[in-house]
Structure formats: C-alpha cells, structure tokens
Amino acid sequence: MRRYLTLFSTFLRLSVLGELEYRANFWVQILESILSLTVAVGGIIIVFDHTATLGDWSANQLLALVGVYIMIGGVITFAIDPSMQRFMQDVQKGTFDFVLTKPVDAQFMASTRQFQLWKLIDVVLGLAIIGWALWRMQAQITILQIVLAALLLGIGMVIVYSFWMILGTMAFWMIRVDNMFQIFNAMFVAGRWPVNIYPTGLRAVLTFVVPIAFAVTVPAEALIGRITPTTFALAFGVGIGLFVVARLFWRYGIRSYSGASA
C-alpha cells in the first residue's frame, strides 16, 4: 500500500516536471477554462432570462451542477484521460511490455502514469463555482449534505474511471479505441444540464450507457439536498459493480494479451 502511494506521488511529480517544460500551456489552459465557464454560465443566464426553473432546478442549483460538471471534467482530463491515452499508445507501440515486466500491479501502473497538471485549473474552478452557487443560495447546508455530496463525487469519479478503464482495456483487441473516448467526450457535454430534463430514452443512455448521470447530476443533487436513499444506494452499487467489472475485464484483457486464453 505504502509502495503504491510512493509510486503514485512519483508519477504525479514526474508529470508535473514534464509539463513545466511547456509553461505556455498554463496560459492556454486559463483561457480554455474561462471559455468553458463562459459557455456554461452564459447558457444559464440566457435560459433563466426566460424562466424561473428548468425541470425543477433553479438558476443557483443549476450553477452548482455546472460547478460539478466542470470539476468532474477537470478530474477526467487531469488524471484519467492522460494515462489512458498513454496506455493505448503503449499497447500500439509495444512498450506496454515494459509495464508488464515490472513487479507492480499493471492496472495501477497503466492508470496512474500520466497527469495533465494544468487541467487542475478546471478542478479548482469547478470547486469555486460550487462554493459560489452555495453562497448565492444562502442555503443551510448541513454537514451531512457536504459529506454525502463528497462521497457521491468520489463515487462519480470511480464510475467514470471504471468506465474509461473498460473502454481502454479494449485496446488489447482493437486498434482505434480512442474513437470511443471521442464519443464519450461528445456526449459528456450533455452533462452540463440535469439529465432529468432529457427524454426517457436519452436519459437512459446518459445514465447507463454513458454514466454521466451518476458522475454529474447525482452528486449535484446531493449538494442541493435532494438526494433520495434509493439514488444513493443505486450510485453506490453501480460504482462498486462497475469497478469490479473493470477489474475483471482488465485481467481478462491481460490474459488475452499474453495469449493465455487464446
């Protein structure tokens, strides 16, 4: 366990070192974060110019959702996506062999090797928006609500991670897996709005095919104190289930990669 913590912090530190080589990217990222903030907040302003609630979400509640959306997006691009890209490249170029010859869990190594430091700006921005939204709501936020929201945010990240891991594992058999990540990215923008406004079929897709509902809407619901025990239990179950599935699928992938199951 200790070893894995050391390893994690080493990978993180090396990624930071690598990225400091390209300092100008910092300003580009600042610009990009401002742009995504503009789109999200601008959309809310224009929509709420014409209505008081959107599918029983008020403007401030929606702002909190946007905060969660930007933050989760930041976590994905900061920690999950870079390692997956690297992993797929490694499989294609054959350098994944080096990972397999190391006395470390290969899934751990494949999912922690690369970070994109400046994307943390989005995480910070997302948290700031959440704080701003809560302040505007003047809500009596209970400790319980914060704990629940933090817990569900964690579960949301586990779900997104497991989902990406499952897609990434397909790289053992397919060449252009990155296309599937593009589909996810294209659909993820839909998470900027609460999934319950979408028509039933689409909502099912955004909940179970691409788990945006659990990653964004559910934690935001917890934040504004609207979570039901059923939703909580469901999110928890989906989180654990998907993580286990991802793990089993990965091991199956490794076995197939080394020709054990063929």
Binding site: G43, V47, T51, G55, Q182, V189, A190, W193, I197
Partner: peptide
Amino acid sequence: AAAIIWMIGFIVQPLMYLVVWTTVAESS
C-alpha cells in the same frame, strides 16, 4: 469511424439545446 464520431458530436449539441429550450417552453 472517426467521421461518424465527429457527426455524433454534431448531433449532441443541437439536441441538448433543443431539450433545454423545450423544457423552458413547457414550464412557461
């Protein structure tokens, strides 16, 4: 494959704003 994915991106955005504005219209 890449081309089709581009196009999915193309459909998601208008679909999303269509849903948002439909919801607004219904509630107003």
